[in-house]
Nucleic acid binder design. Structure first.
Length: 512
RNA sequence: GGUGGUGUAGCUCAGCUGGUUAGAGCACGGCACUCAUAAUGCCGGGGUCGGCGGUUCAAGUCCGCCCACCACUACCA
């Protein structure tokens, strides 16, 4: 059952912004998939990074009185720090201001140009100087012969030279591609939206700008810089060595599963423009693009103006990294919008992590400590234990894996905690504390069964809660080299001395 | 406006191609237990499955209409 390698990416984050829960969320999901697949023995390359070009950055640097490069060096640090804050296991971190990226963008441009996919034209439309944005005619209102943008800024008809990508010619080929690859865009509802959009017809895409300088110069016409999305999307292949097809990592674009995780707001760029660029340049399109949902904060839409942006650093500082990682993936199906609330987080932490799982580990290990002299009993099974094992423990790794392959993080975690609940029922039914005097042999069997269940839980939960599960595996006496999925088939030897248990999760007082 | 989707217990949601008394978690009530982080287990109350009409021996599950909500409807990233 050897699977091709996995290339998994987050979007590169635009540095003209502070890291918020949305960034943390995408990165976290990618991290869990990367860790899970590594545990399964699959080769993985996990990439994240920062998008550092564009007019907004240029202007922000100007306002800060800095050179753009110095400015981005400074502000992109917050995103590099986020990888540590969230405990990310990314293999690479790319910045679009790196020389290798400029080279890759220009190589892609030349490839498109050589294939006749690019032409020079003019971009025209209603432009609001104050907003630095173009508006469609239906968005405008007119008073006294002057047209105004929705923001209230006056607009004027502007025409600037621009290179165009022949996107209109790709609509049919994109539709054929979606047809042949039904899983390319997920979830399915998003796929329908994209298909509807493409079916309505595509315009050629303006892919250069002359209105600012902070970007990748267009080869052969340095008055233009490349459209930020062409620049940004290219990061995914820059990081693998493009255009050097003999680069060590290039095989991740040639023969690996190529999975992009994105927020739903940037799906179009990844599901339409990006595969079109790639196919037009004669390169593989991605294998899969998954668009996840947005968070609200205590039922309210998150926005800077409301001042309710969620800072991942503060979140982790207050609740701890692993509870936050668990909550974000457990609470809401990936792909749907969800609500962040302190109450809900604390309920998950107390009820599921501390009471159900943590306490189960603690009571089991305490019994082994006290009644078995701290030594793991040899493998064996009671009748009820055999049924419990066959129904909930043995199939669990596969169940979790199937859910994670479909990016159903919440269902994967639900499956584990269903088994945790069952384990609590099992220990209560068997009451090993009462068996000590009546049937010590059975007591040893029951405790061993529970230890085995705990070993499976901890092993499978490592990708979501790496730190805490490492401590749990320590307490269970599982050696470092036996913590991958393949090791679950081999029982630990009886007679292993176990350390004294200690609580894994600290409960929090619920303010409500 | 157009297209797609959602509406099931107090809350969050499962319910594949229509078929026994509609399920789970949380919350709530009772009981049991005492190994454990006052943890755990068992039992229970609670739903005219958005509304109306239709197809069918049989509909939460299919069809029509209506109501409510959501998403998409291109070039700031």
């Amino acid at each position: 059952m050897s699977r091709p390698p996995l290339y998994i990416t987050t979007p590169i984050y635009y540095v003209n912004d502070r890291p918020h829960i949305g960034h943390a969320y995408t990165s976290l999901a990618a991290d869990v998939l990367a860790r899970w697949n590594r545990l399964a023995g699959r080769e993985v390359y996990f990439l994240t990074g920062t998008d550092e070009h564009g007019q907004k950055v240029e202007r922000a640097a100007q306002e800060a009185g800095e050179e753009p490069q110095a400015f981005t060096d400074r502000v992109s640090q917050a995103f590099r720090d986020l990888t540590a804050t969230m405990g990310l296991s990314n293999d690479g971190f790319i910045r679009t201001t790196e020389p290798r990226h400029r080279a890759a963008c220009q190589a892609l441009w030349k490839a498109l140009e050589a294939r006749g996919e690019i032409y020079l034209g003019a971009y025209e439309g209603w432009y609001a100087v104050r907003d630095e944005a173009f508006y469609g005619p239906d968005e405008l209102t007119e008073r006294d012969g002057v047209k105004y943008a929705p923001s209230g800024a006056p607009v004027a008809w502007v025409k600037e030279p621009s290179y165009f990508f022949r996107l209109s010619a790709w609509a049919d080929r994109l539709l054929a591609f979606y047809e042949k690859n039904p899983d390319f865009i997920q979830p399915a509802s998003r796929r329908n939206e994209v298909i509807a959009f493409v079916k309505a017809g595509l315009h050629d895409l303006s892919i250069s700008r002359t209105s600012f300088r902070w970007g990748v110069p267009v080869p052969g016409d340095p008055g233009h810089v490349m459209y930020v999305w062409l620049d940004a999307l290219t990061n995914y292949i820059t990081a693998l060595g493009y255009p050097d097809e003999r680069a060590e990592l290039w095989r991740f674009w040639q023969s690996a599963e190529r999975l992009h995780l994105v927020g739903k707001d940037i799906l179009r760029f990844h599901a339409i423009y990006w595969p079109a660029f790639l196919m037009a340049a004669g390169l593989n399109p991605p294998s899969r693009v998954f668009a996840h949902g947005w968070w609200t904060n205590e039922g309210q839409k998150i926005s800077k103006s409301l001042g309710n942006v969620i800072d991942p650093v503060a979140l982790v500082a207050e609740f701890g990294l692993d509870p936050v990682r668990y909550f974000l993936l457990r609470e809401v199906p990936f792909g749907q919008d969800g609500d962040f609330s302190r109450n809900a987080l604390i309920n998950r932490l107390n009820g599921e992590l501390a009471d159900a799982l943590g306490n189960l580990a603690n009571r089991t290990l305490s019994l082994i400590q006290r009644n078995c002299e701290g030594v793991l009993p040899p493998p064996g099974a009671t009748e009820t234990g055999a049924a419990f094992h066959a129904g909930f423990i043995a199939p669990l790794a596969q169940r979790v894996g199937e859910h994670l392959d479909r990016l159903e993080f919440h269902a994967a975690l639900e499956a584990v905690f269903e088994a945790v609940r069952e384990a609590n029922a099992h220990i209560t039914r068997e009451a090993p504390w009462a068996l000590k005097k009546t049937d010590p042999a059975r007591m040893a069997l029951v405790l061993r069964e529970l230890h085995e269940a705990l070993r499976v839980f901890a092993t499978l939960l490592q990708p979501v809660m790496p730190g805490t599960m490492a401590r749990m595996l320590d307490q269970l006496g599982v050696p470092e080299g036996a913590r991958h999925l393949g090791a679950l088939a081999t029982p630990l030897p009886g007679g292993l001395a176990l350390p004294a248990p200690a609580p894994l999760f600290q409960k929090m007082q619920n303010p409500a």
